[in-house]
Amino acid sequence: MNEPCIHGSCLCGTVTFEVRPPFQKMIHCHCSRCRKGTGTGHATNLTADPGQLRWLSGEAAITRYDLPTARSFGKWFCSRCGSPVPRLTRNGKIMVIPAGSLDTAPPIDPTDHIFWGSRASWGCPSGGLPTHDEYPASW
């Protein structure tokens, strides 16, 4: 049975999208790049295959920033309101979906904390989820 699509958007509503489950993971990333990119203690992202996401509106309003000093870190955001929106990894294999951009609750709960060793001292507790100092070897 197919699960219904999950919908999302940016703050101003210019960029809208839908993503078809299932999701691979829902992770909390505590690396300094994600903290800077979100302005929070960690980024919570879902991952899916690129073919599962469909832009409904505003794709032309998306700006992409690839951190030049990083092999794969990047950020896509709405050029009107600055909200993070889903992004394709540089190798084109994974769609990273900011959990905060979703308008519909996803059918998955967070699975892991990554880059736990570099988390902010004032960050949230693990909540019993597995913690990893970097990417787990199985990823």
Results as ranks from 00 to 15, higher is better:
Pro50Gly: 04
Gly8Met: 01
Pro21Cys: 06
His7Ala: 12
Leu53Ser: 14
Ile6Gly: 11
Pro21His: 04
Ser57Lys: 01
Thr40Cys: 01
Gly92Met: 02
Cys81Gln: 08
Ile6Asp: 03
Thr89Tyr: 01
Asn2Pro: 13
Ser79Val: 04
Pro21Leu: 06
Ser72Gln: 02
Thr47Met: 11
Ile27Glu: 04
Arg64Pro: 07
Gly51Asn: 10
Thr69Asn: 09
Thr16Gln: 10
Asp66Lys: 01
Cys31Tyr: 09
Tyr65His: 14
Arg87Asp: 01
His42Thr: 07
Val19Ile: 13
Cys81Ala: 13
Ser32Met: 11
Cys81Ser: 10
Trp76Asp: 12
Lys25Ser: 09
Thr40Gln: 15
His7Gly: 07
Thr38Cys: 07
Pro50Trp: 02
Lys93Ser: 15
Gly100Tyr: 12
Ser79Ile: 10
Glu59Gln: 15
Cys5Met: 05
Asp103Thr: 14
Thr104Asp: 15
Trp55Val: 14
Thr69Arg: 09
Pro98Thr: 08
Leu11Gln: 03
Ser101Val: 13
Val85Trp: 11
Ile62Lys: 09
Leu11Asn: 03
Val85Arg: 09
Trp76Thr: 14
His28Tyr: 13
Thr104Ser: 12
Cys81Pro: 08
Lys93His: 07
Arg33Phe: 08
Gln52Thr: 09
Gly41Tyr: 10
Leu88Ala: 00
Asn45Phe: 12
Thr44Gly: 04
Cys34Val: 12
Ile27Cys: 02
Val19Asp: 01
Gly74Asp: 11
Gly51Val: 02
Cys29Ala: 10
Ser57Ala: 15
Thr38Lys: 07
Gly100Val: 14
Val96Met: 15
Leu53Glu: 06
Gly82Ala: 14
Val96Glu: 13
Trp55Pro: 08
Cys34Asp: 12
Ala61Arg: 15
Val15Thr: 07
Gly74Pro: 00
Cys34Ala: 04
Glu18Lys: 06
Trp76Pro: 01
Cys5His: 11
Cys12Gln: 05
Thr104Gly: 10
Val15Trp: 08
Gly74Phe: 05
His7Gln: 12
Leu11Pro: 00
Ala61Thr: 14
Gly92Arg: 03
Ala61Glu: 08
Ser72Tyr: 04
Gly8Lys: 00
Gly51Glu: 13
Cys31Lys: 06
Pro50Ser: 03
Gln24Val: 10
Ile94Cys: 14
Asp66Ala: 12
Phe77Asn: 07
Ser72Ile: 04
Ile62Ala: 11
Gly41Gln: 06
Met26Trp: 15
Pro21Ile: 06
Glu59Cys: 06
Ile97Arg: 05
Val85Phe: 04
Tyr65Asn: 14
Trp76Glu: 14
Trp55Ser: 10
Thr40Arg: 09
Cys31Ala: 10
Ser32Phe: 11
Asp49Arg: 14
Phe17Cys: 07
Thr44Arg: 01
Pro4Ser: 12
Asp103Cys: 14
Ser79Pro: 05
Gly39Asn: 05
Pro4Met: 06
Pro68Gln: 09
Ile27Trp: 07
Ala61Leu: 05
Gly13Gln: 02
Ile97Ser: 08
Ile97Lys: 00
Gln24Leu: 11
Asn91Ala: 03
His30Pro: 05
Arg87Met: 02
Ile27Tyr: 06
Ala70Trp: 13
Pro98Trp: 02
Ala60Thr: 06
